[in-house]
């Protein structure tokens, strides 16, 4: 039986490309998101293109009470589950900083929901002493900026959570990788002004899968974002607070 990968938030462009890159390597897939119609379409597509087993099921990141049962159903369907990719995320809009109701949803989708499902995954892989967890965070989580700090805070919290998880699971041989994509050409960014060096989802997807063969624990994609963020993180706060970012 081929090893299986669970993709959470499977209908985004990055997730679809990542799933395709796994399928190309012969992995079976379990795709999960809220949108059943899209899941059905993407699953059929991946199955036809790559000839691997693809299953799908409904998953709602914000409905944390359902996560345990969801994860059990995945394990039942895919006994050879070997890894998971946490690809869901919700950008929200600018108003989230002023209206907590909007902000709360961003935090719930990007962090609370992620922490919930990650705990079930980690508890499953830890005693098996194998497997991997890839969390897709964001460069936005590296420093708070006035333009999207609610999203940034949620993603920053996710990065920290993954860091701690990596520390915990190291002893059991479970790989935990944090992916920090810069600008990617997806529905989330399409038509937004001021973007530069935009990467294709296919490129990002392929590199996410390749990160498993490399030693880095925190992966900026594409690579130059490591240096862009290195500079941004090192701007002294008295200067940074004056910038319009």
């Amino acid at each position: 039986m081929s090893q299986a990968v669970l993709i959470l938030g499977a209908t985004s462009a990055i997730a679809r490309a990542t799933a395709a890159a796994f399928a190309r390597q012969g992995y079976a897939l379990y795709l999960a998101s809220r949108d059943v119609d899209e899941l059905r379409r993407i699953a059929a597509d991946l199955q036809l293109r790559y000839g691997v087993e693809v299953r799908h099921g409904v998953f709602d990141a914000e409905a944390t009470a359902t996560h345990e049962a969801f994860f059990q159903s995945v394990v039942k369907a895919m006994p050879a589950l070997h890894g998971m990719v946490l690809a869901f995320g919700f950008l929200g809009d600018q108003m989230a900083a002023r209206d907590f109701k909007l902000g709360e949803k961003i935090i719930a989708a990007n962090f609370t929901g992620a922490a919930s499902i990650l705990s079930h995954c980690a508890n499953y892989f830890e005693p098996l002493k194998r497997g991997f967890i890839i969390g897709i965070s964001s460069v936005a989580g590296d420093r708070g900026r006035q333009s999207n700090y609610v999203y940034g805070a949620a993603k920053g919290a996710l990065s920290l959570y993954l860091q701690g998880l990596r520390n915990r699971l190291f002893a059991s041989g479970v790989r935990v990788i944090t992916i920090k994509p810069g600008f990617v050409d997806t529905a989330m960014t399409y038509g937004l002004p001021g973007l530069f060096l935009v990467a294709s989802p296919q490129d990002i997807g392929a590199r996410i899968v390749r990160s498993l063969d490399k030693p880095a624990d925190v992966v900026y994609l594409p690579w130059f974002w490591r240096y862009i963020m290195l500079i941004i993180r090192h701007i002294p706060e008295p200067v940074f607070k004056r910038l319009k970012l």
Binding site: S12, D35, E38, R41, A187, Y190
Partner: peptide, 9 residues
């Protein structure tokens, strides 16, 4: 004015 949907719906 380009619109690029990713979902069938």
């Amino acid at each position: 004015e380009l619109e690029r949907p990713e979902r069938y719906a």
